[in-house]
Design a protein around this nucleic acid. Sequence first.
DNA 1: CTAGGATCCTGTCAGC
DNA 2: TGCTGACAGGATCCTA
Length: 290
Amino acid sequence: MPELPEVETIKRGLTGFIKGARIKRVTVLCEKSFIGPKEVVLDQKIKDIRRRGKALLIDLENGITMMIHLRMTGQLIYRNADAKSDDDNFAGGHPTDSFFTELPNKQTRVIFELDGGTLYFNDQRKFGFVKLIETGEVENDKFIKTLAKEPWDLTVEEFKENLMHHKSAPIKATILDQKVIAGVGNIYADESLFYAKVHPNRLTGSLTDAEIEKLLEGARKTMQASIDSGGSTMKTYVKADGTKGDYLRLFAKVFRREGEPCTECGTEIIKIRVAGRGTHVCPKCQKELK
DNA sequence: CTAGGATCCTGTCAGC
DNA sequence: TGCTGACAGGATCCTA
C-alpha cells in the first residue's frame, strides 16, 4: 500500500473535493471491502478527513467515521461530475492506469456517489477495506489503539523503547511493525535504513543510540520528502509528455533501484530478502555486521 | 511474551 | 502459446 505519505497525500488532495459533500448513494461491489451497514452513511455530510498512520478517517455528520485502509493495492479516485480538466479530478494510492481510465472497472469495490462527483474505492487484491466505526470509538479500534505515535510525535526515547521489545528480530521487520512506529511500510523502511546507514538484517538489539536516532530522523525526512513531492497521484503518475512517470524516482534512493549506482558511493544497489519482503540496500554504505 | 511463516486475493512477469 | 512458481508499497493469525 500506500504508506503514510501516500495516505497523507490522499487526505490533502481529497479534502478540497469531498469535505462538506453529501453522500447520495453507496454501491458495494465486493462485500468484504465494506464492513458495516452501508445505510448509516446515506445522506450524511462529510465533516472532516483525518489520517492516523496508514488509515484514512472520514468523519460524517451523524457521528459515524469511515475508516479506510488501502493495504497493498487500494486506491481512491474522485471524478468530478462536471470535470473540465484533470485538475477537477483526483486519484491517489496504488498507482495504476485506473487513475485515468473509465470507472467503475474490474477492481472497483465500493462506489460513493456524492453531490458533486463520484468517489471510487478500487482494490485489486481485496486486502483493503472501508469500515464503519462510531467517531468516539475510533481510538478504541483494535488497529488504532495499538498503533504507535506518528513519526514526528514519537520521541527518540519512545522509539528506542518500542524497538527493544524486538531485540532479536531484524531491524527491518521491527520498523515495519505499526506498534513500533506508525506509517512505515516497505518503501520507507528501506529508505530510512539507507539514510541511517544500517543494514536491514542487523538485529534490532545491536543498534547503537546514534543509529536509532538517525533511523528516526531518516523515517521523518524520507516521508516528509515524499509528501512534499506529492506522493503517488495522477499528477506524478503521468509525466508532461504523457508517458508514465514514477513518483518513487523523485525521492527514493534505494527502493526499486537495484542495479543502479548508490547516490552516495556509486556501489551497485542490490535487492535481497529480509523478513519475507523485497529489500533494497547499498552493500557498501549499509554493512551487515558491526 | 516474541519470531517467523502462512494466509487473505488478483495480476503480472520470468522461465521453461 | 501455455503452464508454473515467485512476487507484490500490508497486517493478522497461528504455531513454536
